[in-house]
Write a protein that binds this DNA or RNA. Structure first.
Lengths: 118, 118
DNA sequence: ATATTTACTACGTCAGTCGTAGTACGACAG
DNA sequence: CTGTCGTACTACGACTGACGTAGTAAATAT
């Protein structure tokens, strides 16, 4: 229970990935490391979750893939670039997040209260 | 897309219900109306979701059920009361929520920014 | 040479949500 | 006194996202 349960995150994995793709095209391993770094290891996305998010989002048209052909350096990777639809989806999710926060916080007792009055 | 997608909420429906049960024992229809009211209709829990949450949480020992026997007024209802385990679970979820918020907000662009610097 | 890191793919399972449907009782209107 | 509406559920099945396990294979470090 020290690390965050990913069930909570469900539905926001896509958002996290898209956020990172806003900056530049990227690929699985890099995204994974960035998420780990950004959250200071509080959240580590599972490989299967990550790659299935890629295929799902490509199917939905939020991202497109391309291979790292030229440049003999490193392994062949599958890069993903965010599309306009992906940007819009991200923005919608960002807005939705504000609402979600608001909603859930109606049900969160404030820290340190000794009694249950609300 | 005007009302919040409940997929986001997933994993917090239980928390919401438990929060309301902290105050007093209650039953499905009442809980449902309270959630609607509290969130000013921003979130309306589905009946099936609610009742399956009840049975799941009773199985986990977070709540216990009892019938409204006496008092001939109204229909027979199944009430639920939160247990000590339920209280602890709620508290754990409340703490987890702080973490979750922190994590997700690393991936949320601040409103009104014109460029994508982050 | 070999172990580790990188970079995936495949497959199957599980839990929570939700659509659809149906039951049944009580109150209230016409 | 009959039908409709609000209340209070139960049952069943479908779908989706997350994830455990496993395996492949090239590049890099030891």
């Amino acid at each position: 229970m020290n690390s965050i349960s990913s069930d909570v995150i469900r539905g926001y994995n896509d958002t996290m990935i898209l956020y990172l793709l806003l900056e530049k095209p990227s690929y699985g391993y890099e995204i994974s490391k960035q998420i780990k770094q950004l959250t200071r290891e509080k959240y580590i996305i599972k490989e299967t979750t990550l790659y299935s998010a890629f295929t799902r989002m490509e199917k939905h048209g939020y991202i497109v893939s391309f291979s790292s052909d030229e440049e003999g350096s490193g392994k062949r990777r599958t890069y993903y670039r965010i599309t306009e639809a992906g940007r819009q989806y991200y923005m919608a999710k960002r807005d939705e997040w504000q609402l979600t926060k608001e909603v859930i916080e109606h049900f969160i007792l404030k820290e340190g209260s000794g009694n249950g009055n609300h």
